[in-house]
Design a protein around this nucleic acid. Sequence first.
RNA 1: GGGCCCGUGGUGUAGCUGGCCUAACACGUCUCCCUGUCACGGAGAAGAUCGCCGGUUCGAAUCCGGUCGGGCCCGCCA
Length: 436
Amino acid sequence: MKRTLSSEVKEHIGKEVTVSGWLHKKRLMGGLTFINLRDRRGLVQVLVEDKTEVEKLRGLQIGTVLSITGTVVEDDRSPGGAELHEPTLEILTAVTDEPPIEIDKQISHKPEHLDTLFEYRVLNIRNLHEQKIFKIRASFTRYIREYLQEREFVEIDTPKLLAEPTEGGAEVFKLDYFGKTATLAQSPQFYKQIMVGAFERVFEIGHSYRAEPSATTRHITELTMLDIEMGFVEGHDEVLALVADMTKHVLRRVYEEHAADLKSLNAPELKLTDEKIPQFTIAEIHEMYTKATKTDVTDEKDLTPDEERWISDYARKQLGSDLVYATNFPKAAGKFYHKFNDDGTVAWGDLLFRGLEIATVPLRENNYEKMLEQMKNAGLDVEHEGFKHYLQAFKYGLPVHGGCGYGIDRLVQKTIGLNNVKEATLFPRDLNRLNP
RNA sequence: GGGCCCGUGGUGUAGCUGGCCUAACACGUCUCCCUGUCACGGAGAAGAUCGCCGGUUCGAAUCCGGUCGGGCCCGCCA
């Protein structure tokens, strides 16, 4: 018989249907046995009265795969308003070992339980509440793709195995590559800039690898980045505007589609303004923070984590925005590929979302001669093999361009209000965890 | 890389100013009872030597050192 999904059962009242899925819960009440079956849509309840059918479940644990054929009966006492009666059970894959965790109950996300969370990820991801996080995540990337494709951005895939570190800065992983040393890409930055020379507008959603030994709630060694790069921009403001607009768009869509899920996950209420998102320069934030907290940070080149939280809190409470830009990084923070403002600051903004930096949004230097000069000033060897192909793109014509490196894991984390970025990741990688 | 905190049955905890701990409780598991459950309920059972190594002591889950693992903060970054 054709399979009926859990959510469709109530459309077949009085008829016989077959549902397939996993045993999610059984409650034996003597003459009555209730079982919940889980499939990709959710749960359906089955009432088993026949003793030989009940006996089929003896010794079988949560997770057993089975098919159940029975008659759909409308009943207010049933969770979905309808349930299967007089069922015949067919055990497809019997599970006899007791699962190490209780899948049918909400999985603890307390910091001290994170290790257990990931140790049993294979099983706890079967929990319907846990699954919401990753359905929300999937919606984010779907809406991001939609948004960018509508604006003629071409999705690209760039290599993660590289000969040389690209950007410099963050530590890279080294690995043996047929006797040579290869590194894992810490960013697709060079490639996406190169691709501006072909498509003008490109994006990639892929993994980047950072060998930083950071043990914080916002770092993982394998992260999912959305990288965007667009050519022929009028200036930094255009790039800032695009990233802000995209973020507002996808947040609104996700909050709309997943309203119930977000509520059950205790996600914060979304606060966005219709006009431009609040924007402050790094210097302004340093000044505001120093004044408000009496902690002098005016010599810092970047924002401290506490400043990020402070300015975000200010933006949310005073300006009604969960998003805020920190722009005009001091000259000392600039890299050779950055474009600089007339006042000497870097044309680079950080997008902060609920206290955390989720994206860096810079404008790039596109002039070949100027690039060479900035590289030399940074003490780099422009003849080095690692820059050869990158510089080709500039030598043979790149327009003014800019884009962003955008942390998808952090976006999901902060949307839901998760304490740790790892909670927004299916199988996080950190200093010590390479499994599962 | 620096700092602070934690490590007890399958899971989550209590105990931790040393002896009453031959380690307690909840969930889960197993057996039995229960016809409307949905964190079902009731009766009973099994299951940890307290991360690991060493030390102090008549005696350690409890104190000390080391080690491994975990969490959080800072640096750095998405």
